[in-house]
């Protein structure tokens, strides 16, 4: 394992996905325990995607996570997908998290809401009621955080939750991960928590394994801080840690 910092961001590189997942889960458990000790509760945002499997599995295996004190959120959902659609992020969270532990509450985004703007506003008010103690996120193949793709990302977004158009690279990634049969099946719009609302969390864990993430990781860490690579904003976050495995760190000059 190696550790270094780039600007304000702590980076840790592990030999493999499992070791990375265990280390991130340990740090997540510590952040949750700290919040519960301070306030009796913890507000936690989790990410979806295949990149989060090892982390979520490791977190669920721990015996020191006070799940009953956790109010959980997720960060994005496709506009138009109902909660039973196989690609729905609500379903991912139900099946991969909520089915295995008893959280205090899991607040889901409703992708099938008739008025997505109203649903975004509803979710934003829940986030106002529950300031995040912990935000666990990934980085997309196009450098996105949640569904803040390069074209729509705003580091000073005035909204906490908004409706975005998904870019082509993002939609291709969803096909590549096996969630849709073809690009035409991927919805064109999504509801996403915005970048300032994600990074407002007291602790931010960016969990980014796999070789397909090597290029966006390099862009985020070695390129300019720009919305052209939304994840580059992590370098301004002293409360954030980036967890990589050998594969996702493969293109970095400094390792």
């Amino acid at each position: 394992m190696s550790s270094f910092t780039i600007d304000a961001l702590a980076v840790r590189v592990f030999d493999d996905d499992d070791a990375m997942g265990r280390a991130a889960a340990a740090d997540a458990a510590e952040a949750i325990a700290g919040a519960v000790e301070r306030t009796g509760a913890a507000n936690v945002m989790l990410a979806t995607g295949n990149s989060q499997f090892a982390f979520l599995a490791a977190l669920l295996q721990r015996d020191d996570v006070p799940w009953a004190a956790i109010t959980a959120f997720h960060m994005d959902e496709y506009v138009g997908l109902g909660p039973e659609h196989p690609a729905s992020f609500q379903r991912y969270m139900r099946e991969r998290v909520a089915a295995h532990v008893s959280v205090h509450a899991f607040h889901y985004l409703h992708g099938d809401a008739a008025d997505p703007e109203a649903e975004a506003a509803r979710y934003a008010s829940l986030l106002t009621a529950h300031p995040l103690d912990l935000c666990c996120l990934g980085i997309g193949e196009n450098g996105h955080l949640a569904f803040n793709d390069p074209g729509v990302a705003d580091f000073d977004d005035p909204l906490d939750v908004k409706i975005v158009e998904l870019d082509d690279a993002c939609r291709r990634q969803q096909v590549g991960e096996g969630h849709f049969a073809g690009v035409a099946d991927v919805p064109t719009r999504a509801i996403t928590v915005t970048i300032p609302a994600l990074l407002r969390a007291r602790r931010v864990l960016a969990i980014v394994p796999e070789a397909r993430k090597a290029a966006p990781v390099r862009g985020a860490l070695e390129g300019p801080i720009t919305t052209a690579c939304p994840a580059s904003v992590l370098r301004r976050q002293p409360r954030a840690t980036l967890y990589l495995d050998h594969a996702s760190a493969g293109l970095l000059a400094v390792r």
């Binding site: 301070r38 009621a129 300031p131 103690d133 300032p196 007291r202």
Partner: peptide, 9 residues
């Protein structure tokens, strides 16, 4: 409360 900052300090 109801801010854009933590509400436990």
């Amino acid at each position: 409360l109801c801010g854009d900052i933590p509400n436990d300090e």
